[in-house]
């Protein structure tokens, strides 16, 4: 849908993004991960058209218009504070060419979707942070844009608010929306995103469909009742791919087929088996490996 072709962005001597070539696929929820200053907001602003690349090209493919319609929830929750919530949303609806007749319904629907109907007649400056986050999402949804840009949608929300926000995004994913969101919360990305991009120092370190990434490196973990320091040499003699970490034995690749043998060694050594678990790589592991 959106293609980045060797895109770089410089702010004077600072390189915010460098030689980015990738595609934001249609119908996917793309999660942008990376440490602070990695270039996530710059990436989102480029897609929003607020800034232009210093070099390279960003194009919209398979789209009838020159650029898809965009709904944008910025990271900073600043809105025109003197306006009433419904007034603000009506204005956004007007800018999205929503007809006068449908405008009221569109505003009510978007407020209902983010559970903000009760605040429809409140001034924006009186809203709490959580309500502002929801207002941010509500305004981005108006006009049914082709692409939703959510810059840290759950930032600053309490656990209940985060849960709510993730549920909204899951509903949008189910409705087939294309979403580009940045986040610092790995569990949020694991839960709602279908595609993953990890940025650091303006470069793409990793990109993959989330489901594919999480099927990588299957392994078996055997947990025993106490630290395995004494048994470590014996276990590693069986296969070099056996990793001992504290009271856990991790079997990777061919070592997985040796789990019965390992279990019997552990039992013979007098360890009690607490848990045997089949695992996949976690997003936290992917992230820390990529970033380090």
């Amino acid at each position: 849908m959106i293609e980045f072709n060797q895109v770089s962005k410089n702010y004077f001597s600072l390189t915010a993004l460098k030689d980015i070539t990738l595609t934001i696929p249609q119908g996917e929820v793309v999660g942008l991960l990376g440490p602070n200053g990695a270039g996530k907001t710059t990436f989102i602003k480029l897609v929003a058209g607020l800034i232009s690349p210093s070099s390279g090209k960003i194009t919209a493919t398979n789209h009838p218009a020159r650029w898809p319609s965009v709904g944008f929830k910025p990271e900073r929750l600043v809105f025109p504070g003197d306006l009433v919530v419904s007034q603000y949303l009506e204005m956004i609806a007007g800018l999205c060419n929503v007809g006068r007749v449908q405008k009221d319904n569109v505003v009510l629907e978007s407020l209902a979707r983010v559970n903000l109907l009760a605040a429809a007649n409140k001034q924006i400056k009186t809203l709490s942070k959580g309500m502002r986050q929801r207002l941010g999402l509500a305004q981005a949804l108006i006009g049914d844009p082709d692409l939703l840009l959510l810059d840290e949608p759950s930032s600053g929300l309490d656990p209940a608010g985060q849960e709510e926000m993730q549920t909204y995004i899951e509903e949008l994913r189910a409705a087939g929306k294309t979403i580009l969101m940045s986040s610092h919360q790995l569990h949020e990305v694991t839960r709602v995103c279908t595609y993953l991009i990890i940025l650091k120092d303006g470069r793409v370190l990793y990109r993959s469909p989330v489901a594919e990434a999480l099927t990588l490196r299957p392994h078996v973990a055997i947990q025993v009742d106490r630290p395995l320091d004494g048994a470590k040499p014996l276990l590693q003699m069986v296969h070099p791919n056996i990793v001992v970490e504290g009271s856990e034995v991790i079997l990777r690749d061919e070592a997985i087929s040796m789990r019965r043998q390992i279990l019997s060694i552990l039992i013979n050594q007098g360890y009690d088996i607490v848990k045997v678990e089949q695992r996949r790589i976690t997003l936290a592991e992917i992230y820390s490996e990529a970033v380090q």
């Binding site: 607020l50 709904g71 944008f72 929830k73 910025p74 809105f79 204005m91 800018l95 981005a140």
Partner: peptide, 8 residues
């Protein structure tokens, strides 16, 4: 505060 309007 005008970013969301401008992108529309």
């Amino acid at each position: 505060e005008n970013y969301p309007m401008l992108v529309r």
